[in-house]
Design a protein around this nucleic acid. Structure first.
Lengths: 170, 170
DNA sequence: AAGATACGTCAACATGGCTGACATATCTCG
DNA sequence: CGAGATATGTCAGCCATGTTGACGTATCTT
C-alpha cells in the first residue's frame, strides 16, 4: 500500500500527499457541516417530542406532496418497519394524512396537515437561516461548486431520484 | 439579503421562491451526499464487527496522533460514557493504544497501532475513491466552493477546532 | 384465477446516543 | 502543604432508531 500518511509537508511533498490532505479536508468539512446543520433543528424537534427520523419524513412529504409510502422508503433507504413507526407517530399527532391512490388503490399518498406544514416550515426556517448565511458568505460561484461536488457523491443509481425532488409530481 | 442565484429564472418567478429552492437543493444534496459517502464504508466496518462510531474515533486519532481523550470528546461532541464504550472496544481489539501525557499525567494520548492504522487506511481508501471521483468530475473551482460553503456551516465556536485538524500537534 | 405488488404489523434484537452518580489520579494555586 | 479543579473511567439504566424474519390483506396485472 502506498505511503499515504505523510504529515507535515516536507520540501518536495508529493502530489499524493496533497491529494490526501484535500480528501481529509472534504471529509471533515462534510462531517462537521452536516452534523452542525442537523443539530440546528434538534432543539425545535425536542420541544415537540419528535426526533430526526420524523423530520426527515416531514421534509420529504413537504417537498413532494402526495408522495407514496414506497417512494418515501426509497428516499430514506430504511426498512418499512422503521418508517412505519415514524409515520404512525406523525399520523397520531395529526401532522400527516394519507389518502388512497387514485390510480392504484394499493398506494397511500402522503400529505402534511396544516399543523404538519407549519411545523415543517418552522424547522425549515432553521435550515434556511444557516444555509443562506453560508451561501452569502461563500458567494454564488462557491454555491454552484458546492452543488456540483455533492452531486458527484450521489451514486449514479440514486441521482435521478434526487433530481426528481425538484420537479412537481405529475 | 443578496439575490445570489437565479438559475434560468422563469418569467415572474419570485426571488423568495428561488431562494427556497436553492436552500432545499442544498439540504438534499448534503443529506444524500453525506449519507451515501458514509454508507460506502459500512460494509468494510461490518466485516470487522465495528460500527460508525468506531470509525469516527479511528479517523480523528489517525488524523491527529497523540490526541487526548478530551480533545476527541470535543470533536465528536458526545458524552464520555459513549466514547468510553467505543475506545474500550478499540483498545480490546488492539487498534488503539494510550500513553500517559508527558506534560500532564492525567491526560491519555491516543494513537493507532499498526493494525489500527491499516484499518483506518483501508476505510479511508473508500472515502478517497468516492471523494476524489467527485472532485475530478466537478473540477478544482468547484472543490474550493464546496469547502467555502461547508466552512460557513460550521459555527464560529467550532471553526478553530476544525481548522486545527490540519496542523501538526506541537 | 394466480401471482406480483403495496402496505401494515408483530416480535426480537443491535447500535449508539443519553442522564445520573461516583471513584481516582493529578495538577494548580493560595 | 492542602483544597479544589480537572482529566479520565465506570456502573446502571433508558431512549431513539435502525435491523431481520414472518405473516396478513387489499389490489393490480395478466
Amino acid at each position: 500500500m502506498a505511503d499515504i500518511s505523510r504529515p507535515s509537508a516536507s520540501p518536495g511533498a508529493s502530489p499524493l500527499f496533497l491529494r490526501e490532505d484535500e480528501i481529509r479536508r472534504g471529509v471533515e468539512l462534510l462531517y462537521f457541516g452536516y452534523t452542525r446543520l442537523t443539530n440546528a433543528i434538534d432543539q425545535e424537534l425536542a420541544k415537540q417530542g419528535l426526533g430526526r427520523a420524523h423530520h426527515r419524513a416531514l421534509y420529504f412529504i413537504a417537498r413532494q406532496p402526495d408522495l407514496t409510502v414506497g417512494e418515501l422508503l426509497r428516499l430514506l433507504a430504511i426498512t418499512k418497519q422503521s418508517l412505519g413507526r415514524v409515520l404512525k407517530e406523525l399520523h397520531d399527532r395529526d401532522l400527516v394524512v394519507t389518502k388512497t391512490g387514485p390510480l392504484d388503490r394499493r398506494q397511500k399518498l402522503l400529505r402534511l396537515t396544516d399543523a404538519g406544514a407549519a411545523l415543517e416550515a418552522e424547522l425549515f426556517a432553521q435550515l434556511r437561516e444557516r444555509l443562506s448565511a453560508a451561501y452569502v458568505t461563500a458567494g454564488q460561484e462557491s454555491v454552484t461548486g458546492f452543488w456540483h461536488v455533492l452531486e458527484g457523491l450521489v451514486p449514479e443509481s440514486d441521482r435521478q431520484m434526487v433530481f426528481d425532488l425538484r420537479k412537481d409530481k405529475t
